[in-house]
């Protein structure tokens, strides 16, 4: 287990390193000549060269990359950004995953129990439609209906949790609903397919033959096996979910990583944008790490190597 975790963390660090190279390359391409941009038009080449030397821009590109990485990781900016901006984003993402899993489990089990009935088809149509609805539109519609037309839910900001669980919960209702509904379609469909497949296995037939009730059959036999593909698809959905989270943070004025990204890009604050991009990548990388660990917890046969 420890060795597996270490290897996964090493892979995650490798992925983050790759992402940093990518971001650095992008910024490097863009900043044709920062010195010229800072000093303006009427300036001698000597002064540009001087400022370039001062800022370390005359050094070889790999050295610049290392210096830039040191600045991005060491000056505490990343830590500051993470402690302030990470919690709202992770809260929204985590709650979204949780609610979506609950919804997917309920939808899929109902579908399997009433297979090929009208209810099955109706749920299928609803899930299909939900997966076609973009999160930013659903979020805007919810605000329009439940915050503007009938003001019963708060539309903006999420207060810190310890300021009162009730208000915090009320603020999270709309964003979390939107986020979970935007992913529940494919999740429920995967879960349903694997429940169906598990239902035809020999051990299920045996269990059914010895008289195990349908509910217990699902609970003790098929459900855990069907969770594995669901965990895989949750891990794979995280980056897409974060796309939606970025839009939702803007709609619901949640001061997390998404808002920081948009604000920094609009103001051309590339240092902040870099740090926030890294933090967003960190969230997905850590999220898929969690998915891998959960995979092993659900299936004891999996050997961590």
């Amino acid at each position: 287990m420890t060795r597996f975790l270490l290897r996964r963390v090493a892979e995650a660090v490798g992925a983050l390193f790759g992402i940093m190279i990518l971001i650095f390359a992008l910024l490097h391409l863009y900043h044709g000549s920062p010195a010229a941009a800072i000093l303006g038009k009427q300036v001698t080449p000597q002064r540009i060269a001087h400022l370039n030397a001062q800022m370390g821009l005359n050094r070889p590109v790999p050295i610049q990359f290392l210096l830039w990485m040191k600045a991005a990781l060491w000056n505490g900016a990343l830590v500051g950004v993470l402690t302030r901006l990470l919690p709202p984003t992770v809260e929204l993402l985590g709650l979204g995953v949780l609610v979506a899993v609950l919804l997917a489990v309920v939808a899929a089990t109902v579908q399997v129990h009433h297979s090929r009935s009208l209810l099955d088809r109706a749920i299928g149509v609803i899930l299909n439609t939900l997966s076609a609805i973009p999160g930013f539109w659903l979020g805007s519609l919810l605000v329009f209906v439940f915050a503007v037309t009938y003001p019963i839910l708060p539309a903006s900001g999420v207060p810190v949790m310890h300021h009162g669980l009730g208000t915090w919960f009320r603020h999270e209702i709309m964003p979390v609903t939107t986020l979970s509904l935007s992913v529940v379609g494919p999740w429920a469909r995967h879960l349903r397919a694997s429940l169906d497949e598990a239902g035809t296995a020999d051990y299920v037939r045996t269990a059914r033959a010895k008289g195990v009730a349908e509910f217990n059959l699902v609970r003790h036999h098929t459900f855990k096996n069907s969770l594995l593909p669901l965990i895989t698809i949750i891990g794979m959905s995280l980056p897409t979910m974060l796309n939606t989270v970025i839009a939702l943070e803007i709609i619901f004025a949640i001061r997390g990583l998404g808002v920081a990204l948009i604000v920094s890009l609009n103001g051309l604050f590339f240092a902040l944008a870099t740090t926030v991009s890294l933090a967003l990548a960190l969230v997905t990388v850590l999220g898929s790490l969690c998915a891998d660990v959960a995979y092993g917890l659900v299936d004891p046969r999996i050997q961590y190597r």
């Binding site: 992925a15 992402i19 990518l22 971001i23 992008l26 910024l27 391409l29 863009y30 794979m236 980056p239 897409t240 974060l242 796309n243 970025i246 990204l261 948009i262 890009l265 051309l268 944008a273 991009s277 967003l280 990548a281 997905t284 990388v285 898929s288």
Partner: peptide, 15 residues
């Protein structure tokens, strides 16, 4: 695949 697609998209779009 591990980066939310919007991040490079917005970054490059601004650059």
């Amino acid at each position: 695949l591990s980066i939310p697609q919007l991040v490079p998209l917005l970054l490059i779009d601004v650059l």
